[in-house]
Design a protein around this nucleic acid. Structure first.
Length: 423
RNA sequence: GGAGAGAUGGCCGAGUGGUCGAAGGCGCACGCCUGGAAAGUGUGUAUACCAAACCGGUAUCAAGGGUUCGAAUCCCUUUCUCUCCGCCA
């Protein structure tokens, strides 16, 4: 979140973010509440100063054996007034903080201005769209023919949108996850974590999923827990309320997790197959870095995610999200979109974002700066590396053969313990 | 689930009603010392908010509430941690 001070001092930048991200928070209302809060604060603090002064005086009188009843009576009234003002202050403070949680992060300079994904900026691509000399099957057909997943039976368990991988499909899913984790840890120096898949309200608020996107989260009311929508939530929170030394930064973590998303409001859209599901697997990367380096680290993070697709030989492109497509918490974000030949579409498999201090402030994640030994909020970044359902779609469609088999890219073969998918 | 113990600054740890934002130590920063380092030594070292030319003010000893002129300290509630017992595996 943004500090009220920042909003007060950089009102225009905040307004730009609000309009750019098409948020409906009322900044004027927030500023008015802040004004009111400071008025009350001044009054109550002056009274408290008076009380403190007189309490000390009373102590001295009593120590000297003198009568302090006059002053005590006087202070009793002051204390009553303080009590009243404190209550009012708390109320205003609560209203203000509640609203602050809904203020989106500022937008980094240079982010393309736009209303939605059509305004995203092409950054680069890698590889080429593969060409085929035979009619293509889409991933659903391939999956059906090779019995890689069984979405019909899955419905019996949890309803639509919860994929059931079977046989070679299940093994491929596991191979992809292991391949990605190994690459991030062995080649890119990320520390591996295996986090809890349920998170509490506070942790979920840190990363920005709450309070604004509560309707997108699965929740468990009996225990006040949420099913994580991304490993970003548990991993970012591991350093909540901590102060890291500058020398330990950047810290890089990678974690596999199942991800749960209600995808409320997206019914009918892209609901076929593995394109948009309620539960999916994802390997995530999270970085804790100094503010000076966070944009450099964003480039590195994006490259780390791209490396996965390159190793698998999948054509993809990188786009920079326009203001209208940028998420609530992000200051800047690159999407990586992999090419699905049969669908003839680029599919988002990774979002790599710099959150600057937005999440750090919510989660109170700080570091001690070397230059002046002061404590500052650090910057957090994260990116998928990558989400499996669409990765599998691209993989199946890209490497399908005329005979209906799928030849796996070489780096994946030791993980799959085989070189192709066939019946 | 039952019983008990605990939660104080970056860390450890003292502090049971009145200059306690908090002793002491560690760590850290800067200086001295040294050829350089270690050791030693001196000084400094919480955070947030308000107000700011400067001085300053307020709050914070897990969280919330209460008693009091005044609470780290007394009372209540909650959360978390640890130990023992039970339960499950």
């Amino acid at each position: 979140m943004l500090s009220i001070k920042f909003i007060r001092e950089h009102t225009q930048r905040v307004r730009d973010a609000v309009s750019g991200k098409r948020s409906d928070v009322n900044i004027d209302e927030i500023l008015a509440l802040d004004e009111r809060r400071r008025g009350i604060l001044k009054e109550v603090e002056d009274l408290k100063a008076l009380r403190n002064k007189n309490s000390a005086a009373i102590a001295i009188l009593k120590r000297g054996g003198e009568d302090a009843s006059g002053k005590i009576a006087e202070m009793r009234e002051v204390s009553d007034r303080i009590r009243t003002l404190d209550l009012k202050l708390k109320e205003v403070d609560g209203q203000l903080n509640e609203r602050l949680l809904y203020v989106p992060n500022i937008i980094h300079e240079g982010v393309p201005i736009g209303t939605d994904e059509s305004d995203n900026r092409f950054v680069r691509d890698w590889g080429k769209k593969p060409e085929f000399s035979f009619p293509l099957k889409d991933h659903l057909k391939i999956g059906e023919d090779l019995q890689l997943f069984d979405l019909k039976r899955a419905v019996k368990i949890s309803g639509a949108g919860f994929p059931l991988y079977t046989g070679q499909g299940a093994r491929l899913e596991r191979a992809l996850i292991n391949f990605m984790l190994d690459h991030h840890t062995e080649q890119q120096n990320y520390t591996e974590l295996f986090p809890p898949f349920l998170s509490g309200k506070t942790a979920t608020q840190t990363t920005g999923q709450l309070p604004k996107f509560e309707e997108d989260m699965y929740k468990i009311p009996s225990d006040d827990l949420y099913c994580i929508s991304t490993a970003e939530i548990p991993v970012t929170n591991i350093h909540a309320d901590e102060i890291l030394e500058e020398g330990e930064l950047p810290r890089k973590y990678t974690a596999y997790s199942a991800c749960f998303r209600r995808e409320a409001g997206s019914y009918g859209k892209e609901t076929r197959g593995l394109l948009r599901v309620h539960q999916f697997n994802k390997v995530e990367m999270v970085k804790f870095v100094t503010p000076e380096t966070s944009y450099e680290e964003l480039e590195l993070l994006t490259a780390d995610a791209e490396a996965i697709l390159q190793l698998l030989g999948l054509h993809y492109r990188v786009v920079e999200l326009s203001t209208g497509d940028l998420s609530f918490s992000a200051a800047k974000c690159y999407d990586i979109e992999v090419w699905a030949p049969a669908m003839e579409k680029y599919l988002e498999v990774s979002s790599c974002s710099n959150f600057e201090a937005f999440q750090a402030r919510r989660g109170n994640i700080r570091y001690r700066r070397k230059s002046d030994n002061t404590v500052q909020f650090l910057h957090t970044l994260n990116g998928s590396g990558v989400a499996t359902p669409r990765l599998m779609i691209a993989l199946l469609e890209t490497f399908q053969e005329k005979d209906g088999t799928v030849t796996l890219p070489e780096p994946l073969q030791p993980y799959f313990k085989g070189d192709s998918l066939s019946l």
